[in-house]
Amino acid sequence: MSTPIEPRDDEPIEETLRPHLWRLRARLVTPPEEARVAADLDRLHRAAREHAHGAPTGGEVVAIPGAGGGDQGPGWSRFGQVAAALLLVVAVGGGLAVGSNSTSSDPLVADGAPQPDGTLAESGDPARGDTSTPGGADSAEHSDASDADVEVERAPQDGVDSPDAAGAVSGDDGASGTDAASGGDGTADSGAGGPGAPTSPAGPAQGGSGSASGGSESDPAPAAPGESGPPPANDDSGSEDSGSQDPPAEPPSGEEIIAAPDPGELDGFGGQRPCPDGSISDDCLAPDQGAGDADDSDVGSGDGQSDDGSGGAVARPEPEQPESPSQPTTPTE
């Protein structure tokens, strides 16, 4: 019934019907006109260039010229250049705006007060660091999105310029600089976070959130100088900037603290020591108490200068107290 050229699922066609079907096909299927072909092919080729490899993405747009679509390449590259320039302008402008806002809006941090809670400390790292050092604030903010490398190099200089830059504060600058660098990387990838963060009021928070991990470690730093806070944070942060910033800010310098106590006088007695005549009295303790004051100041100076050696040297005698001969802790007379 069915001929070999027909599919098996077809209805069999008698010989008298087949010529009619062929003639029907010949009537309907005719080659298009040349003008029509030229116009259709022109539209088709243009559409094919635009939709090569599916939906055009950034990378595919760049790859289109190599695939033969040279007409689209320069336009897209120019568009990319313009977009990059706009992003840069927005980033710089937003950085200026946020810098000015941060210097005027957060005086608590500038005073070195402790952070109220952990959330603020994590979200506002760049802003706090900038407010603490007005001179260095702008540079740090500028570099949040655009040039983090430059900012990292600028941080010590800003700390030098700022007259009130204590060791810990400058250390915070350094920490914020690193935070900004990391946050800048994260926002630069997205293309929107970099410029968007500085321009919007929540911009610093966004930038800080991107660098929350790095900034949280150094967050206690601004609180440290006023209260002689935990040494580890200050040591980490101040180690970068100690040489240039600490001397004008901290009354007792690290060198003075080292020179103040005589190691020979501190052996084995801690805070109490015999007088030269062999007796123990409060008068003879006065120099040691001065040394004890120096110990306190050492802690403070160590915060800013990262004088691990000096602070540690002063603090070492305290563990040595048990080694001291069983001196009476109470004055004998």
Binding site: T30, V37, L44, H45, A48, A52, G54, A67, G68, G69
Partner: peptide
């Protein structure tokens, strides 16, 4: 044709359009 080749699209057009 996926890569935007004009010759490929011309062949597809001449085969399919009629």
């Amino acid at each position: 044709a996926r890569g935007g080749d004009e010759a490929a699209w011309t062949r597809l057009y001449l085969d399919l359009a009629p």
